[in-house]
Amino acid sequence: MRTVVDVRDVTFAYGEKVAVEDVSLSVDAGSFLGLIGPNGSGKTTLLHLMLGIKRPDSGHVELFGEPADAFEDGERIGYVSQRSTDRGEAMPTTVREVVTMGRFAHVGRGRLSATDHEIVADALETVEIGDLADRRLSQLSGGQRQRTFIARALASEADLLALDEPTVGVDADSRERFYDLLDDLNRGGITIVLIEHDIDVLTKHVDSVACINRQLYHHGDTVSFLESDALAEAYGAAHGVVEHDHP
């Protein structure tokens, strides 16, 4: 199977503080990887290293078979950053304007074509917010805003979707529908890397888990993760998975 992201012996530090130490993992095309770990464990830093927007101090990262920091096909990656639901609170952007940003890497300095607009419209319909296209982002609920950012990633026709705690501030019902949408997209062939704190939600949807607290404690399928001691080791205390519902 084709490897989308390949991380080899990567270490990264902010000054003296090591955030990621000697981590190796790979993400295959079409897989759904969950990144989990305590607060400040280096998850976001690892994701940024995987996406090539940070350079490792040592080690090597490949993205779609190319060195990540030299990778230039930005349109192949859709990214939803931490606290993205806060974006657009003050800036008067419409949903359509945000989703259209997904086409910018394709067109560069050129003009958007009719095809670009059709792709944007299709992306809006796919995440079921076509009727909200001309609303200001600030008028949307947290769940609708997340769908907007996913639509932006779809508009870029991304092969890889990277999401950093995308459901912070989103109500439980919207979260479930959001993860169902991710499942659908993954079944459609999009590779997904997801940072999520809720272990229960994570293990229900992803097919593999990387557990990190500076170092990598586990990387494998969901079943092997649940059977391992990785969680307790990474969090430094006895941890287990408790099944619960999101009312």
């Binding site: 927007i53 230039e72 930005g74 990214y79 950053s81 657009g88 800036m91 910018f104 890497a105 067109v107």
Partner: peptide, 22 residues
């Protein structure tokens, strides 16, 4: 006018713009 798209994207979400290789 020439760089409106890039200025808009980097203003709205600089991190996502970096990922898109702007």
């Amino acid at each position: 006018a020439l760089f409106y798209k890039q200025l808009l994207f980097t203003t709205f979400d600089a991190q996502a713009a970096r990922v898109a290789r702007l």
